[in-house]
Structure formats: structure tokens, C-alpha cells
């Protein structure tokens, strides 16, 4: 298909991710309203492919406003020419993968995670002795459990200031897959990132990863939950379950 073999276009996503929030599409190729770039289009499609997945934007924004999430990287003025943001994100993704492996060494379910700000996809794949984070893949594979979240959320989890379960409860992570997939994942990894968790890797927060300020670390401990709770016990409303714990699409 010609569109996919167009090297300029193929390179667009990579540049956009590495350079942060640069929108690189030639404007004359844009649609009627003129402000579509590959990044915003792929983000927009996400809201359809994984229905209401962009609700994490609202949830993350609310958490930032409540000062329960750190100011995001995009608070930087100008272009991230040296890729600091990308490197920090990659480190956090690798660390998240390590946390998952530590929490459940036998877990084999393939997971794909997309961070909505840069639309960066990462696939966590099981190898012989580790869970490898393949950062910057084109998207999820069929059958994957898909996690949709944001950079600041991942950073807080990786820095062990926010448990995965709390992030889910607050709507800052949404999961897409079959109900058993989702339930198993949340039960297994709900404590990942929690400061009082015992299952995940014991690693001190890396202050250089994200720009969190002091005094924002207590919530995860306050809101972490026992490992044997079910999703319904996490405080999710039925409505929340309907939207966030989305059933895999019929045509899949």
C-alpha cells in the first residue's frame, strides 16, 4: 500500500514522538479545518478504536489540577530537541515492565500500553526470563490487553508514587480487552507502583524521571488496596466499569 511505504510519512510518527510535541505533517495535506497532524489524528482515532479512551485526558487533567499528578513534560516551552522527554519516558516504560515482571514472574499475557500525549505505543512481551518493553511499536497486536494512559501517570507509577490500581480507579488508566483479561491484570498488578506494595520491584523513586514536586507521594499509600480485591471493590462504579473496563469489540 503506497501510503505505508511513503518514507516521509512513515518517518513522521517517529519524529513526532522523539521531538515531543512537534507536529510535522505538511499542512497542505491536512483536512478542511487545517489543523490535523498525524499525532492528533492518531489520538483522535484512539477514541474510536478504544471507545472513550481519551477520557484519560480528562482524568489526568483533573488530577494535575488537584495537584495529585505532577506537572507534565509538556509544561516545557519549546521543542525537546535533545529527546530528554523521550528518554525519560522510555526509562519509565522499562521500569514499569520490570515492575510487572517482578509482580508476576509467570504472567504471560501480552500487553500494549499507549501514552496519549505523544501517542507512544509500547508492547510488553514475555521472553524466556523477562518481560521486555518494546518501546515505539506501531500499535497493539490482536488479543493484547491494551492500557491507555499518560506520561505523568506512568512516571508516578514507575517512581512508586502511584499504584496501578489507584490510577485505574481515578480513570487515569483505562483497560481494553476481555473482561477476564482485565480482571486478572488488575488483580495481579493493582499494587504495582504503590509505595507500600510488596509485589513490585523495590526501587527508589528517580526524581529525574519526572518533574513531581515533594509532598505528592502519600496518596498511593492511602488508596492502595488488598491484593485479593476485585475490580468492583476498587471503588469503580458500574458505570465506570462499563466504560473503562471495556469489552473487546465484537469484530475482533
Amino acid at each position: 500500500m503506497k501510503a505505508l511505504t511513503n518514507p516521509r510519512r512513515a518517518g513522521v510518527l517517529g519524529v513526532a514522538v522523539a521531538a515531543g510535541l512537534m507536529a510535522t505533517a505538511p499542512a497542505h495535506e491536512a483536512f478542511a479545518c487545517g489543523y490535523h497532524d498525524p499525532q492528533s489524528v492518531s489520538r483522535g482515532f484512539l477514541n474510536w478504536t478504544y471507545p472513550d479512551s481519551l477520557h484519560v485526558i480528562g482524568a489526568i487533567s483533573r488530577e494535575v489540577a488537584a495537584r495529585r499528578l505532577p506537572l507534565p513534560h509538556f509544561d516545557q516551552v519549546g521543542v525537546d530537541l535533545f529527546g530528554r522527554r523521550y528518554r525519560a519516558t522510555k526509562i519509565a516504560l522499562d521500569r514499569f515492565g520490570e515492575m510487572l515482571r517482578t509482580a508476576s514472574p509467570t504472567q504471560s499475557q501480552p500487553i500494549s500500553l499507549v501514552l496519549v500525549e505523544p501517542m507512544l505505543w509500547t508492547r510488553f512481551e514475555r521472553s524466556a526470563d523477562s518481560l521486555h518493553a518494546k518501546v515505539h511499536v506501531s500499535g497493539a497486536e490482536p488479543g493484547d490487553l491494551v492500557l491507555v494512559s499518560g506520561e505523568a501517570v506512568l512516571g508516578e507509577i514507575a517512581a512508586r508514587r502511584l499504584s496501578f490500581g489507584d490510577a485505574v480507579e481515578r480513570g487515569t488508566v483505562r483497560l481494553y480487552g476481555t473482561e477476564p483479561q482485565i480482571a486478572e491484570f488488575v488483580l495481579t498488578f493493582g499494587q504495582v507502583g504503590g509505595s507500600d506494595g510488596h509485589a513490585d520491584i523495590q526501587q527508589p523513586p528517580d526524581a529525574s524521571l519526572f518533574t513531581a514536586s515533594a509532598g505528592q507521594t502519600g496518596l498511593a499509600a492511602q488508596q492502595s488496596f488488598p491484593a485479593d480485591t476485585t475490580p468492583a471493590e476498587l471503588g469503580c462504579t458500574p458505570d465506570h466499569q462499563k466504560t473503562s473496563f471495556h469489552r473487546e469489540r465484537d469484530h475482533d
Binding site: P26, I60, P72
Partner: peptide, 22 residues
Amino acid sequence: KISTSEPSPERAMHPFMTNPKL
């Protein structure tokens, strides 16, 4: 203006339209 520019900490900083060539 569009859904991806609904309220968020980043929306003001996000380029809305660009043409790097020009």
C-alpha cells in the same frame, strides 16, 4: 476547538497547525 484540545494542561502549548517548510 477540537476534542484533543479540550481542557488539559498541555493544550495551550500544543502546536495547532504547522508548516515547517514555510
